[in-house]
Computed example of a mutant assay.
Amino acid sequence: MDRTADTLPPATGAVQTATSFTATATADGTWYLHVRAEDKAGNWSATAAHLPFKVDMTLPAAPVISSSSHPDQTRAYRGKDLTASWKAPSGFSAGYSVALDKISATVPDAVVETTATTYGAQLTEGVWYLHVRGVDANGTAGATSHFRVTVDTTAPGAPAVTSTDFPEDAWAGSAGTPGTFQVATAGTDVAGLTYKVDGGTSTGVPVTGSPVDLQGRTGIHLLPGG
Rank of each mutant, 00 (worst) to 15 (best):
F92E: 13
A99P: 00
D101Q: 10
A99Y: 03
L130G: 13
T124Y: 13
D81T: 15
L100K: 04
E113W: 01
T106F: 03
I103Y: 02
W128M: 05
V111R: 02
A141L: 09
R78W: 05
W86T: 00
D136I: 02
A76N: 02
P89N: 03
D136S: 06
S90A: 10
S93Q: 07
G139F: 10
D109M: 11
N138H: 04
T83V: 08
E113F: 04
P108Q: 10
A110E: 09
S104F: 02
G126K: 03
S97V: 12
A88L: 11
G142C: 03
A76W: 00
A76S: 12
G91P: 08
Q122L: 11
V127L: 02
V111L: 02
P89L: 06
T124H: 13
T83R: 06
N138C: 00
T118K: 07
A99Q: 06
A99N: 11
R78Y: 05
A76Y: 03
L130T: 13
V98C: 01
E125P: 14
T83H: 04
G79Q: 07
A99L: 06
V111H: 05
T144E: 07
A88T: 14
R75W: 11
A116E: 11
T140A: 04
L123D: 00
A137C: 09
V132C: 07
S104L: 09
P108C: 02
T124D: 11
E125C: 00
A121D: 04
S145W: 14
V149I: 15
G120N: 13
T115R: 08
A76C: 03
A84T: 11
V112T: 14
K87T: 10
Y96D: 12
R75I: 07
W86H: 01
S104D: 09
S97W: 05
D101G: 06
K102A: 10
S93Y: 10
W86Y: 01
A105M: 11
A141T: 08
H146D: 14
T83I: 04
T140G: 00
V127F: 02
H131Q: 08
V149G: 10
Y129I: 15
F92W: 12
S97A: 12
A105K: 10
F147H: 06
T83P: 00
T106Y: 05
T150I: 15
A88F: 04
T106Q: 14
T115N: 05
E113N: 02
S85E: 09
V135C: 13
S85I: 10
T106I: 14
T114A: 12
T115L: 07
T106G: 11
Y77D: 01
T115H: 08
A94I: 01
